[in-house]
Design a protein around this nucleic acid. Sequence first.
DNA 1: TTGAGTTCCTATCTTTCCTATATGATCAGT
DNA 2: ACTGATCATATAGGAAAGATAGGAACTCAA
Lengths: 153, 153
Amino acid sequence: MDLSAKGEYGILAALDLALTRDATPVQAKAIAERQCIPIKFLEHILRALRNAGLVESSRGIHGGYRLAKPAAEILVGDLIQAVEGPIAGTHRPHGTRNGSNGKSLHSSREILIQTLWADVQDAMLETLNKTTLADLCRQTRELDEQRVPMYHI
Amino acid sequence: MDLSAKGEYGILAALDLALTRDATPVQAKAIAERQCIPIKFLEHILRALRNAGLVESSRGIHGGYRLAKPAAEILVGDLIQAVEGPIAGTHRPHGTRNGSNGKSLHSSREILIQTLWADVQDAMLETLNKTTLADLCRQTRELDEQRVPMYHI
DNA sequence: TTGAGTTCCTATCTTTCCTATATGATCAGT
DNA sequence: ACTGATCATATAGGAAAGATAGGAACTCAA
């Protein structure tokens, strides 16, 4: 039950955009270098974020990416789902593969498990949606403040 | 974020053991047929459940499996973790792969994400542990009672 | 208009993990 | 000793994840 690389990259990329408050858009290349993400892989992730309406892009010589809304309005669950696909509603119990007959003898047990797992997914989503991108920004700055001064003394 | 076949099979197998109140142990073959699980695959799962101390086995001609404790004391989270490995404490952020130097520049962001995901795992586990095997038994019987009578009218 | 730099898109490759199977060893009872 | 079950390890096959390749489309500046 690990977080996928895709998911982690998505959060890191969005966090990078949120922390880089700049007039000009941020280029994928810059994000890739700062966050140590393979550039070609990052392009897919940024496209997913863009298709989900979380990020805007502009092309051409001074192109790049920026957040489509304030960081406080972007939930971590939005980022994960944009990149990894929807969390809920994808589970097909192993008995539902027969296309023709809808008999499904074991359905009661499978409905049970399906419901149980739906609860798990809800809990995951709820937890992810407790944190906004703005929260992550603040926490990042707090952590950095605790660390960087160590090297200045 | 689907439930793996392993996880589903594990729950189904345990549920089968719990519902089959019998003096003699239940054989893997019987479980496999009832729950539509490939027998050889089921053997792995039953072994995992046994190693976790959730199930007891006896060999020989009248061998088979039975629950090692009352169904009310077996949590669904126990079943899942027995079969799929521990849910928490496995995540390695993608920057922690360098064996030698412990500099880890991006550590603040990665610690952040790691903490966030730990919360998600906790939420999953908490949800899974809200239900015991005995609960699943009761729910199964309730669902079956609602269904079977339909065919008797 | 041309060229450079960027995003956008599709396809492919590589690796890892999941599912399932195969084979045989080990054990218990008749 | 024979039968029928669990136990253990190895491995095949396929799906998914991770990463890469190549070029089309677009924007702006010189």
